[in-house]
Design a protein around this nucleic acid. Structure first.
Lengths: 117, 117
DNA sequence: AAATATGCATAATATTCTTATGTATTCAAA
DNA sequence: TTTGAATACATAAGAATATTATGCATATTT
């Protein structure tokens, strides 16, 4: 039997772009499905990206000029690789830094009960 | 002149209930405006709760049985104090713990760039 | 006297996500 | 061998959560 502990989804709100940009800043290029699996693995199954959230986000980041795509055929299946533009690289850095600072602030707000590290 | 650094608002999404419950778990009773000012102070002006978000959230938590209210007249002005029910106390604890765990997971995902203490 | 701060509240709108659905290929197990 | 699970993309309807704008009213400071 398998008990899967998922976060109440609301906490995840607003972090998707940051996660995607960060992964791409470490991986040269990734495709959508790969991103969902990587996040699942890195979070021990605690963060499960849904396709309905991921694909629109990727498309939006692309339309904003932060990502570019490269379509590859794997047999008869299509795979769409995403990679960061120069602007994407700096945005990724900024987003991660912002999130880190946000965590510090939240830690102050919630401090007594938090034992991080 | 005053330069105010605010987080991109999206990060705050989903954390409001946790913040409110946590503050109330430390303060016996608080009123809405007081909560906005406390959060502003604790976050060094980085988190500014809007009334349009706070009041509906307070009402919702009340309707869920996590908060109870007590209205007090201050001169001719009304002040509505909120305090936790028993269920509110345990929910507050659970929410804070969940957030702490979420932060640990996010830290793993974004680790290389995070230097938290 | 006017501006700022205190104090509550709601409506219209925007953003971001979930859930549901659709299409199609590949691989492993029964 | 066929059935289910995994791989791989995508979009639409709806829910949840927040912003912005607005409204009302009193108290304090300049």
């Amino acid at each position: 039997m398998h008990i899967c502990f998922m976060y109440s989804k609301e906490l995840l709100k607003g972090t998707l772009k940051t996660i995607v940009l960060k992964l791409l800043s470490e991986n040269e290029k990734m495709y959508g499905y790969e991103i969902t699996q990587r996040v699942k693995a890195l979070s021990d199954g605690k963060i499960l990206l849904t396709e309905g959230a991921l694909y629109p986000t990727l498309h939006k980041l692309e339309s904003e000029g932060l990502l570019v795509t490269e379509t590859v055929s794997i047999g008869k299946r299509i795979r769409k690789y995403y990679s960061l533009t120069n602007e994407g690289v700096s945005t990724a850095e900024a987003k991660v830094n912002e999130f880190a600072d946000f965590m510090l602030t939240m830690r102050t707000l919630l401090s007594p009960n938090l034992s991080l590290s």
